[in-house]
Amino acid sequence: MNIVTCIKQTFDTEAKIVIDNGQVSTQGVNLIVNPYDEYAVEESIRLKEKNGGEVVVVSVGGDKTQEALRYCLAMGADRAVLIQDPALEQADNLGCAVAMAKLISQMEYDLVFCGKEAVDDGAAQVPSMLAEKLDLPQANVLTALEIADGQATATREIDGGSEVLEMKLPAVLSAQKGLNEVRYPSLPGIMKAKRKELKVVSLADLELSAEDVAAKTELVAAELPPARKAGRVLSGEIDEMVAELVSLLKDEAKVI
């Protein structure tokens, strides 16, 4: 079973956001593999361990993104492809999906796996866009997955519950927390990762033009959210505090 797993390199979730000139500064920020993508990588590796085949991790990014791909190789993916091109620096999610879909369409695969969203822009767009561009069925936000006889049975989180979907492979799937427990790369894994193939391709290599990936959305300005006004810590005996709280919620905040 050959699996293509798409990953994005994102800020560490602990990162402090600094705005510089209306844009989020990347200076000194610790970069990680998007946490949801790790679930996708983990699931892909498990499927490979069970069924054979290979896991190829794919990303759109810059020089630093190689680190994220190496991390996935250290976890146990077999090889990596980075799509890197100046024209992709301003690309939006659709542009990235177009580039990855073109790459993937030239590969042999049974499954495309993504994380359900990236923790930076939290958009949750790429998996469905990939599915559209590859003309494949999709199942997003998965908390459970079974694969047998070329058929996927996927449990997808929906508002207020979950639903079980069935589809024939190939398909595009996206992982939610809870799908599995992500492994750490082992030390031997880290050593092996150094020797695994990490290929860098440009748009030209994919026979795409800058026009094909041109951004339709543009982040014109980012700012820090307005600070919440300082709250109040109530004091007194428990009964007094509780009584005060209830009247504050009722009369001042008007939320109950």
Partner: peptide, 13 residues
């Protein structure tokens, strides 16, 4: 964006 640590304004073309 960044889980609410920043707020971004987007334009769509």
């Amino acid at each position: 964006i960044y889980a609410g640590k920043a707020v971004a304004t987007y334009k769509v073309n």
